[in-house]
Design a protein around this nucleic acid. Structure first.
Lengths: 238, 238
DNA sequence: CGCGCCTTTGAAGGAGCTCAATTTAGGTGG
DNA sequence: CCACCTAAATTGAGCTCCTTCAAAGGCGCG
């Protein structure tokens, strides 16, 4: 089902996001050697599931994912949206078992990184070690930001924060930061932001009326990022 | 102000929480060598502040802390409460700058762990490397749990979750899991749980009425953990 | 003993939720 | 290519839980 494919980090379009800058070509070869395979994941398929044994991290090459925790009674809390160049699976290291599900939002492709080998390699190459630690730490900071959002912001502030965050990540990938297509449903956005889908929809409509954002289903055009920014500014210290 | 004190991990009461099990005495000596100093932090003092340059991690020896993000308009989001044996400062690794404040909730004492040296040592001792990665990963999982709480639970479910979590951590430290004193104010609990202090107070009162918890100011006695558990159960998958 | 802070408790108001109906988009098969 | 069907998104109305505002009680500390 998932054909293994040989990787070539050196030519990967999202290499700058996955790997630290300034690796020697020999170091890159070593990385390629452990990143043994790629896997294709179809839309709505799970890359891994909460409870699955942990063995590898996954670097997204193409596509995007959501991570979620599902509750007994069927509700889902989306804990993050991940795009090309980002790492999935860090949650599994602690207990050697994944703590959340990773679901593809579109047809996607990941590089499989066996964790033990990554640890081994990072013992030899401090640049790699540093990079890995930074990636994990940034996750933590990111989560703190989300807690701030969930704990303190009103609905429209949350959505504005979300849009600006998406915009920034599109820019980092060389896409237009002002015009993009959301890969996730209102329901998924709502779950991520701690809101109901109707509330998300209403907030979008209001942004539209106010002329800040042009919304048509999942197509987004940011027309006044300044207004969005000032909307969240009084919440985000500095 | 902060007198450096030589450490002795081998005899530390919270060693089991800080260090991986089964280190050789020689390995422990090497750890002791890099954990150069201790620092005493008085109640309400900050161990570090958002924006401070990052250089070290801190292992709590005695006492407890809150971590928080403060917003421009003075609101605070408490992102976590930390007890003896837990690590502070992981947020600083990513950008080499702390992303939150760490404030002592009582007179406390931490071991200072220069991060570069920890990285160096963890290159040589895989047990240490593993342990560090696990600690970080568990933080991520922990944060996911908090998102679930903030995004999906009602006030009383949140407080019940909080109490059970505290109870578990007291137990892990050899204290009574059913009778303990909270180090933080209603306001701080509220900030952590995404609630106002009045709501926290009311929830405590209701738990009291229902006979599940005996509350007297900050003294807590859990009388029916089963009831608390069933209260959050329908939210926490598995 | 008195002051200040934390906590508790009450009452009223509001932001977002629930329930429900309608519209729109995307996919399927004739 | 169009009609049909299903899922997603929008919009409305009433309700609920938490917040806000306010006041009183309790504890610790000088």
């Amino acid at each position: 089902m998932n054909k293994p494919i040989r990787v070539a980090c050196a030519e990967c379009t999202v290499r700058d996001l996955c790997l630290p800058p300034g690796l020697s070509s020999q170091e890159i070869e070593e990385v390629e050697a452990i990143v043994g395979t790629r896997r294709k994941i179809k839309r709505y398929q799970e890359l891994f599931h909460a409870g699955d044994g942990f063995g590898s991290l996954y670097a997204i090459r193409v596509g995007s994912f959501k991570t979620r925790v599902t509750t007994q009674d069927g509700r889902e809390q989306v804990t993050g949206f991940r795009m090309a160049g980002e790492i999935l699976g860090l949650d599994g290291i602690g207990l050697q078992r994944h703590a959340c599900d990773a679901v593809a939002l579109e047809d996607s492709e990941v590089c499989v990184i066996p964790f033990e080998q990554l640890e081994e390699l990072s013992r030899e190459h401090t640049a790699l070690q540093h990079h890995f630690h930074r990636v994990m730490s940034r996750e933590l900071v990111n989560d703190q930001g989300l807690m701030l959002l969930l704990g303190n912001m009103r609905a429209e502030e949350r959505l504005a924060t979300f849009l600006l965050n998406m915009s920034e990540r599109m820019r980092a990938r060389g896409f237009s930061p002002n015009s993009f297509v959301l890969r996730m449903s209102r329901q998924e956005i709502g779950s991520y932001l701690g809101l109901k889908l109707e509330t998300v929809s209403r907030a979008f409509s209001r942004f539209n009326e106010m002329g800040m954002v042009e919304v048509s289903q999942r197509e987004i055009r940011l027309k006044d990022t300044g207004a969005l920014r000032s909307m969240v500014e009084h919440c985000t210290g500095t």
